[in-house]
Amino acid sequence: MKVYEVINLGAKELQGICENPKLEAELLLAYCLGMDRINLIIKREDEVEEGELAKFLGLLNMRKSHIPYQYIVKKHYFMGLEFFVDENVLIPRPETEILVEEVLKRLKKGNTLIDIGTGSGAIAVSVVKYFPDCFVYAVDISRKALEVAKYNAKKHNVLDKIVFIESDVFSQVPKNIKFDFIVSNPPYIKRGELETLQEEVKKEPIIALDGGEDGLFFYKKIIEGAPFYLNPEGAICFEMGYDQKEEVTDLLTKGGFKNIEVIKDLSGIDRVVIARYKL
C-alpha cells in the first residue's frame, strides 16, 4: 500500500475515536516510519513495507481502544519542549502553560520553588529551563512518575537544578526548607465525575485526576501545610478547574493568604490563582 492509502485507511478506522482522524493517522504513520509529518506528505506516493504497515495497524488498534496518542508515541510537547510521557503520568495540558508563564513572570534570581504533584516534571523542568537562576524541588507520591520526571529533567539538562522527593504533598519534605513559591496543578476532578470523563482521560492515572468528593482535597492539604514552608511573602500558585474560582479563593483567604490574583486561560476561563501569605 502507498503512504496516502495507509493514511486513508487509518483515518477511516479512527472515525468517531478522535477529533481529527486524518491528522492522527498521519502522525501515527510518521512515527512508524521514523519521519516527520511534512516528509510523510511529501512521500505520499511511496510504498509502505509490510513490517511498517503491521506496526501501524497495531498502533491503530491501541488508539481505537482510546489509549491517548501521546502514550502511544511516548511524547508530548509543553512550553515548546518535548517531554516523555507514559501511562504513569498525566499528559500536560495547554492550560497548565499559563500557570508556568505566570510563575516565570514573578521569579527572581535565587528563588526556590516546590512543584507538588510533578508528574512528568513538565512544570518543574520548564521553569528551570526558562529561568535557570532558580532552584526547584519536585514532589510526587508516585515513584514511577518521579522516574519519568527525572528522565525529562535529564533530557533537558536540568537534572542538577531539581531535587526530587517521593512524598504525599509535604509529608517527606524537610521542614527546614523554605520556598518562595509553592506551585501545583493538583488533581481537582470531583470523585463522582470521574466516570463522566472522556475515554482517553480515563486511561490517565486516576491518582492524578481524583480531587476527592468535592474536588478540593489537595487544595486544602497544600494550603494547610503552606505556612510551614513558605518564606515571608512567599506565594502559592495553583491551577484550578473551570468552576472552582470561588471555592479555591475562599480556601486561600481562610488560610491566611492575601493579594489573590486570578488569571484566565485563552478561553476566558478562570484557570490560575496566585496568592501571597500574610505576615
Rank of each mutant, 00 (worst) to 15 (best):
M1R: 04
Y4M: 07
Y4N: 11
K12I: 12
G16I: 03
K22E: 12
E24K: 04
E24A: 10
L27V: 12
C32D: 03
L33I: 14
G34W: 08
M35E: 14
N39K: 13
K43D: 13
R44V: 13
V48T: 05
E49F: 02
E49H: 06
G51N: 10
E52R: 08
L57W: 07
L59Q: 00
Q70C: 06
Q70R: 00
V73S: 10
V73I: 15
H76N: 14
F78R: 04
M79L: 06
L81E: 00
L81Y: 01
E82K: 03
V85C: 05
L90H: 07
I91W: 01
R93D: 01
E95Y: 05
T96H: 05
L99K: 09
L99I: 06
E101G: 04
E102D: 04
K108R: 15
K109F: 03
G110I: 04
N111I: 07
L113Y: 05
I116Y: 10
G119C: 08
G119S: 07
G121C: 00
A122S: 12
V125N: 06
A138N: 10
D140P: 10
I141V: 14
K144S: 14
E147D: 11
K150F: 13
N152V: 13
K154H: 05
H156R: 05
H156D: 11
D160C: 03
I165K: 03
D168N: 14
S171C: 14
S171A: 15
Q172Y: 09
P174R: 13
K175T: 14
K175I: 14
D180P: 02
V183I: 15
V183G: 09
V183C: 08
P187H: 04
T196D: 14
L197N: 03
Q198A: 10
K202I: 01
K202Q: 06
P205L: 14
P205I: 14
P205S: 09
I206M: 08
I207A: 06
L209R: 03
G211D: 03
E213N: 15
E213H: 11
F217T: 09
E224R: 15
G225Y: 01
E233Y: 12
G234D: 06
G234M: 11
A235H: 05
I236T: 06
C237Q: 02
D243A: 02
E247S: 13
V248W: 05
D250S: 07
T253L: 13
F257R: 01
G268W: 01
I269E: 01
D270S: 12
A275K: 00
K278F: 10
L279G: 14
